[in-house]
Design a protein around this nucleic acid. Structure first.
Lengths: 154, 154
DNA sequence: CTATTTGCAAAATGTTTGCAATCCG
DNA sequence: CGGATTGCAAACATTTTGCAAATAG
């Protein structure tokens, strides 16, 4: 808990040097982000923050997530049809999400290296493989279904 | 225009054999889907349909897109933060979307073959690379930015 | 001090739902 | 005819915005 304190302070400094003020809602948001590594929705982050400062509003959370994203500290990704998930940019990774049971697997950076290379070579596109999850069927759900993971395969 | 008539009829038959009724809104939705190949949002499809039958409502369009999706005729994908895009499942393809200028490139099936293979091998996941776009920076926007396409690359 | 940030309430956006009226088969 | 489908309006879920009051530096 105090291990991440240094990194937390770094983020607060970054805010200051960007001309932003360090306020209680911002402090608590950064604290929440470092406290647990996983993804959280804006609503979940707001709940954690409100446990400490009950009247921080969710719009403040959204505004500050946006600012932290602009500064490169935070990233959001879309793992399904629900709300976006936020996490530290330094913990960026890809996601496989099962469209049947909603299971999700976090996948390492390197998994997309080849795709990235080819996207650059063929289309000049520098992809960010984290932003949207890759939907599919997990092993368990494939077994239960005749429906293939991909309509056009074969 | 009458070239796709056969395929349109096939879809209508499929509806009938699924126990669904063939109504005017359904006919017109299928017609719109075949008429132009691109992606369209529910709202755009509704507009095309309403040009022919003014009081077809957007909720009917949503309901019928859902049913056609269930039957495997239609697919939707998320190309960005806005509304979902719908198109014929038979025309499934991947998407690269520039997060700066919103340009998008449609990419062939085969582009994901290797990723698919490795997702199965390593995680047992059968991915559907069409559902979510792959976000990134197009060549033009990379040139204009110091910000790299990927935070963790390097 | 004063410009930034906040809380609240309201708007905006995209999609879903309840229900009585309508239509297909 | 009878159940499936529709249109409408209202609900819903997520995110954004306007604005006066609070606050950091």
């Amino acid at each position: 808990m105090s291990l991440s304190g240094d990194e937390e302070e770094e983020v607060l400094s970054l805010l200051r040097s960007a001309g932003d003020r360090v306020t209680t809602p911002r402090r608590l948001l950064v604290r929440s982000l470092f406290e647990a590594a996983g993804h959280r929705t804006a609503e979940e982050l707001a709940a954690e923050i409100q446990a400490r400062a009950p009247d921080v509003s969710i719009s403040t959370v959204y505004r500050n997530l946006e600012e932290l994203e602009r500064l490169g500290v935070v990233t959001h990704s879309h793992l399904g049809h629900g709300p976006a998930s936020y996490h530290l940019a330094s913990a960026a990774h890809g996601h496989l999400v099962c469209r049947k049971c909603d299971a999700h697997v976090e996948i390492a950076e390197g998994f997309f290296a080849d795709l990235r290379r080819r996207a650059i070579a063929e289309f000049g596109f520098a992809i960010d493989p984290h932003h949207f999850a890759v939907i599919g069927l997990c092993a368990g759900c494939q077994a239960e279904t005749e429906d293939p993971g991909d309509i056009t395969a074969g």
